[in-house]
Every structure is written in structure tokens, then in C-alpha cells.
């Protein structure tokens, strides 16, 4: 049956936490209650938590780099990337050359209702056309509206943060985001 110490200790923990939440400030300011500062929760619509730079929020498309090679679409485990494209003739790179055949991207849709945010498409892209951005506010009331086309994906390109430096001891090279 209840002995005192354990029960009292428990009361102490909750009281301490309440105190820390209500009076988070130090020194004489301790007396001013500031729960907004002491609470760990973020009051979402008023203030927004910044996700880490690597956060996989949404996939942005840098359209100029995309060659419609279909790699991402084929590697996608959920079959949620739809690409259509056609070939066009482009002028040669240098004078006297032959005209080149390049791929033009007509459609690049990602169905975020299906997407599992695994990042395989970003990883397999050989031309640096797909990037993760921590942007997360793109919910839709209807599930069908979650199919985003290449214009929308392109808009997110602005929110792509630069790649982070690595911790010492790493041999990875820091990549650059095309702007």
C-alpha cells in the first residue's frame, strides 16, 4: 500500500514541470509568467515550426534539367509519377555541328495521394532535376487535387534550401542546387 516517498516525488515532477512552463524566465523575471515561451508546443497557424533543411516535405522539379528519361517514373515504388514527353530537334551546340535530338517534357505529374515520400525518384535522377523541399503546406480538401503538375512542382523550386555542409570526417561532396 502507498508509502509516501514515491507518491510525493511524482507530485514534485508535475509541479516542477508546471513551474517551468509557467515561469520559464530566469532571474527576477521568473515572476513574470510566460507560458508561451515555456510550453514546448508550437501554436501552428500563428507560428510555424521550421522543419530541418533535409526534411522531405514535397518534391520540387527543376524543369530545365529534366530530360524526360523516365527513370524516376520507373523506379517509383508506388507508380505515382506520370511523365509524358516528345522529341524535338535542337540546334547544334557548336558551329558546323549536326542538329541534336532532345526530349521535351510535356507532362510531369506526381500524385501526392499515392506518394510515400521515399525519395527514390530524387535519388535516381541523374540530371539534378528533382529536389526535396521542407515545404509542407499543400494539403487539399479533395484527394484528386493532390495530383500536382510540373508548374506547381516548379514553383516549389524556390523553397529548396541549399545542401548542408557535412560533419568533419565526411568524404561526401556538398552538392549545389541549380537556381
Amino acid at each position: 500500500m502507498p508509502r509516501l516517498p514515491g507518491l510525493i516525488k511524482g507530485l514534485g515532477v508535475t509541479a516542477r514541470t508546471a513551474g517551468r512552463t509557467l515561469f520559464p524566465k530566469r532571474g527576477w523575471k521568473t515572476l513574470i509568467p510566460a507560458p508561451q515561451k515555456g510550453a514546448v508546443t508550437v501554436q501552428y497557424p500563428h507560428e510555424k515550426e521550421a522543419p530541418p533543411d533535409r526534411a522531405r516535405g514535397v518534391i520540387a522539379l527543376h524543369e530545365e534539367n529534366c530530360t524526360a528519361c523516365m527513370l524516376c517514373s520507373r523506379q517509383c515504388p508506388d507508380w505515382c509519377i506520370y511523365i509524358e514527353g516528345h522529341k524535338v530537334k535542337a540546334p547544334p551546340r557548336r558551329e558546323g555541328g549536326k542538329p541534336r535530338t532532345v526530349n521535351m517534357l510535356d507532362r510531369f505529374d506526381i500524385d501526392y495521394a499515392l506518394c510515400m515520400y521515399c525519395g527514390i525518384c530524387v535519388e535516381v535522377c541523374p540530371f539534378d532535376a528533382l529536389f526535396w523541399t521542407p515545404e509542407y503546406e499543400y494539403s487539399e480538401p479533395r484527394i484528386a487535387d493532390l495530383l500536382h503538375d510540373k508548374d506547381r512542382l516548379g514553383e516549389w523550386m524556390e523553397t529548396v534550401p541549399d545542401f548542408l555542409d557535412y560533419e568533419t570526417g565526411s568524404e561526401q561532396k556538398v552538392r549545389k542546387v541549380p537556381r
Partner: peptide
């Protein structure tokens, strides 16, 4: 309020 503070939350505040 008190329960929220004891749990490091704010409770209703809007």
C-alpha cells in the same frame, strides 16, 4: 490550464 502546464503545453489559448 493547470494540466496543460504540467505537461509543458499551453492549453486552449485561441
Amino acid at each position: 490550464k493547470m494540466m496543460a502546464f504540467m505537461q509543458s503545453r499551453l492549453g486552449p489559448n485561441d
